[in-house]
Every structure is written in C-alpha cells, then in structure tokens.
Design a protein around this nucleic acid. Structure first.
Lengths: 209, 209
DNA sequence: CCTGCTATTTATAAGGC
DNA sequence: TGCCTTATAAATAGCAG
C-alpha cells in the first residue's frame, strides 16, 4: 500500500527504513488501539528498535495492569488443565506469582520513595519467603522430571536388551545351521545387520554401542 | 476500510464484533510481522479476549527470548537514568518476572504434554537458575534495607544524644543559677520538660527511654 | 528526522455459503 | 467459525520541502 509494492525483506536503505519504521510503528499501535476499542479486548504491544528505543502500547493504559490480567489468564489456563494425578502434586503454584509481581512493585516503589522503610523491609522478607517456597517447588519438579527421564532411559535399555536377546537367538540358530554344513559365506553377506562384521559375538557388541 | 466507515466504539452486534475481532487480530499480527521484517526490530504482541482466549505474536519466535531482550533494554534504560548511587546496585530485576511466567507456562505445558521430556528438564533447570538469581537479588535488597534501617536508627540515636547534651547544658546552667540563690522551686515548676521530676539527673534518664 | 502530499496497495465491512 | 467476493476505507511508499 504505497507507490510501489514492497518486498517482505529488510529495507536496505537506512533512511527509508527509518521512515517506514516510524510510519508503520504508529500504524501498528493505532490498529492495536482500534481493535481494543472495537472489540473490547486487552492488547499489549512492545516494539523496540535495535538502536535501543522502546515503544509500547497497552489497552489498559498501564502495562502492569495488563500483565496482571495476563497472569490471571495463565493461572486459569493452568487450573483448567489440571486433572492428572501426580502432575498436580508437582504443579508450580501460579497464584503466588501474582503476589511476587505485586510485592516487587510495592517494594520497588517504597525503596525509591522517601518514606516507610519498615513496611518495605516486611515486604522484602515476605518476598524472600515466597521465592524460597517456589524455588522448593521448582526443585521438586526438577527431581520429578529427572526421575522420569531416568525411568524412560531404563525402559529404553530394557527394550534394547530384549532386542539383543532376540538377535542372539537368531544368530545362534544360524550358527547351529552352519554346523550342519550350510554355506556360511552367503548367509553372512545377505544378513540384514551384519554386512561388515565377521562373527555373531561382535555383531552383538556393535548393537550395544 | 470496508463497505462502510466504522465508528471507533464498541461494536454492539456480538456476531459482527466477533468477525471483526478475528479479522483485525490477524491483520494486527500480520502488520507486526511485516514491521519486524522490514525494519529488523523486535516486536511482541499479546491479545486476549475477555472470553479468555490468548493470542500472541513475537518476532523472535520465542516469547522468552523476546522478554530477555526487553529485560536487557530495561536494564540499559535503568543504567542510563541512574544518578542515585546505591539504588542501582540493589535494584530488583523486574523484567525477568515476565520470563518466569513464560518459562513456567512452557514448563507446565511440557510437563502435561506427552513429549520432549528433555526440553522440559532444560527449562526447569533454567527456571531454577533464574529463581536462584532473583532470590540472590532479593536478599541483597533485604540486606540493603536492613542496613539502611540500622543507619537510620543510629542517626536517630545521634540526634537524641545531641538533644540530651543540649538539655544537660541547659540544666547545668540552671543548677549554676540555683547556686547563685535564684528561686529553684518556681523554676522547676515552669520547666518545659520537668514537671514531674525532681532533679536534673533523673530528667536526663527519662529522655533515654 | 519530521511533515505533507498522492498514487497505490492493503485491509476490511458487509454479505453470502 | 472460516472462507469467498466486492466495494470502500485506510495505510503507506516514494518524494518534496
């Protein structure tokens, strides 16, 4: 939409890139605002140029409020999809998240501000407690995942073991047949797994690797 | 831009509001993508309808990465507008918050889902690291606040000490005058701080409490 | 770098399936 | 909800100042 159709790639000319950035950035934010008004939805847009400038739009006016709703959304999402047994046990407590954000905000404000240092300290202590608690939860989850990984690994090993046993049985049968005077040379050449090995024993070992 | 010009207010008809939401949401995200490509900038867009659905776009593909850059940006901003000394040193890192939420979401999703347990573990490890890091920051802040409180307390004590010294000097002068035969009874009755005490020594002690 | 101007391209409202 | 089509409103590329 302009004098010429633009290719969808980086605009080489630095000057016109800057102009386009400015125009389209405004356009984007305008669109976001319109959408939020027309359809009564919450929208947040963050743009930052690699030259370091930041532009943001938020339908609620305050980005903090927006993120609070975002968090609430995540909480609901998390709650609605619970139901499995142990999964719930190791679920990180989303709801405390919101209070982290809030506490941090409060604490930051009070640290910057000139007054009420005692309240600030109380908040920070609570904050520390909450972080410690969540860290504990996170670590529980970590252990859970690690255990699960290990179990999967063991399962895989068992499977491999079974495969190897079958393979050995097959090979043993072949050896038996060899003893009965069958042409060993031709059998080895046509074997699906043993083109480059010479003995049943080595073939087994190579599968282990 | 359509058959009719729309007023910039909530679309009353629920059905056409939904249609408009869908169309414009896609349009917005398309615009965001185009802008990010044409001008090589990072963009994040979060839309969530009041009916609870979430739509997001992020130029980097991963919202976590985006927020990391956002965080870096905020840090730089904070650094550039420093001026207050210690504040910077003990500033809690807000921006990492959002990535906590993001990471949590990722981890939660992957824990619930049937696949890629390894990725999940990586995420959880990163999560642990981040929590540990922030906990460190929070504790630094706590120490800072505690130190500051202590300094304030000491300052208050010093002030009191000075007041006491002045008071003592005043009292000593009065004692001197007493020795010179002035009416001690009346002086004590009219003294601003000593209505209920009998001697200069006791008056000093009561101020210490 | 911004502001304005216009020729063009895009986005999209309305309507139907 | 998703996808068409079409008429029309908006956005904007290139350029001038």
């Amino acid at each position: 939409m302009g004098r010429k159709k633009l290719e969808m790639k980086l605009i080489e000319d630095k000057s016109s890139r800057q102009v386009t950035f400015s125009k389209r950035r405004n356009g984007l934010i305008k669109k976001a605002r319109e959408l939020s008004v027309l359809c009564d939805v919450q929208i947040g847009v963050i743009v930052f140029s690699n030259s370091g400038k930041l532009y943001e739009f938020c339908s609620t006016g305050s980005f903090a409020k927006f993120l609070k709703d975002y968090q609430r959304h995540l909480e609901l999402e998390a709650t609605s999809m619970e139901g499995a047994k142990h999964k719930k046990m190791y679920q990180v407590d989303y709801s405390s998240f919101k209070s982290y954000a809030e506490l941090l905000k409060v604490v930051e404000t009070q640290l910057e501000g000139p007054n009420s240092k005692q309240l600030s300290l109380v908040d920070i202590l609570e904050l520390e407690n909450q972080f410690t608690a969540t860290l504990t939860q996170v670590r529980a989850k970590k252990r859970f995942l690690q255990t699960e990984l290990m179990l999967d690994f063991l399962k895989a090993l068992k499977k491999k073991e079974i495969m190897l046993k079958e393979e050995n049985a097959l090979l043993e049968r072949e050896v038996e047949e060899m003893k009965n005077g069958v042409d060993m040379e031709r059998r080895l050449r046509n074997h699906p797994y043993l083109h480059l090995v010479n003995s049943p024993r080595q073939a087994t070992l190579s599968l282990l690797h």
